[in-house]
Amino acid sequence: GHYRIRINGREFEIRGISEEEIRHLEEALRNGADEKILKEIVDRLRG
């Protein structure tokens, strides 16, 4: 998958993330885990 997200007015492209991972992120966001989720995304993109 290849997705664009906007955070604090800046747009980011996220590549190589699966539909299942996105559902997991959405679930966590609904549970209020904003900073933790951003850290997970950044860590994943770093490799």
Rank of each mutant, 00 (worst) to 15 (best):
F12D: 00
G9I: 01
E13P: 01
I7K: 00
R44F: 13
G32L: 06
F12G: 00
F12Q: 01
E26W: 11
I37E: 11
I41K: 02
D34T: 14
G47V: 12
E27V: 07
L45S: 03
D43T: 09
N8S: 04
I22D: 01
I7C: 05
E35H: 11
R4Y: 09
I7H: 02
A28P: 00
G16C: 10
R6I: 15
E40T: 10
E27M: 14
A33V: 14
S18I: 02
E21G: 11
Y3E: 01
L38T: 02
E27K: 09
R46S: 14
I7A: 00
R4M: 08
E35Q: 06
G32H: 07
A28H: 13
G1V: 05
D34I: 14
E19A: 13
R4N: 03
H2D: 14
E21C: 12
E21F: 07
I22A: 06
G47W: 05
G16W: 08
E20A: 11
E20M: 08
G16P: 03
N31S: 12
G1R: 06
I37L: 11
V42H: 04
G47N: 11
N8V: 01
E27R: 10
L29D: 01
E35W: 15
E20Q: 09
L38N: 01
R6Q: 09
N8A: 06
E19Y: 10
E40A: 14
N31L: 10
R10V: 15
E35I: 11
I5Q: 00
E11F: 09
E21K: 04
E20L: 08
E35M: 11
I5T: 01
E21A: 08
I7L: 05
E27H: 13
E40P: 03
G1A: 04
L29G: 02
L25F: 05
L45M: 10
A33D: 09
D43R: 14
E21H: 05
F12L: 03
G16R: 04
L38A: 03
R15W: 14
R44H: 07
R6S: 06
N31P: 03
E21L: 05
K39Y: 15
R10D: 05
E21N: 08
F12R: 00
R4S: 03
A28G: 04
R6N: 08
H2M: 08
I5P: 00
E26R: 06
G9C: 04
E11R: 02
E11H: 04
N31C: 11
L45P: 02
N31K: 11
E20K: 08
R6T: 14
A28F: 11
R44S: 08
G1E: 07
S18N: 06
R15C: 09
I14R: 00
E21Y: 05
E21S: 08
L45F: 13
R10M: 15
R4V: 14
Y3A: 02
A33K: 07
R6G: 01
L38M: 08
L38S: 01
E19V: 12
H2A: 12
A28Y: 11
R15E: 04
H24Q: 14
H2K: 05
L45E: 02
L29C: 04
Y3W: 08
K39P: 02
H2L: 05
G32M: 06
N8E: 04
I5V: 11
R4H: 14
R23T: 08
R46Q: 15
E35K: 05
R46Y: 09
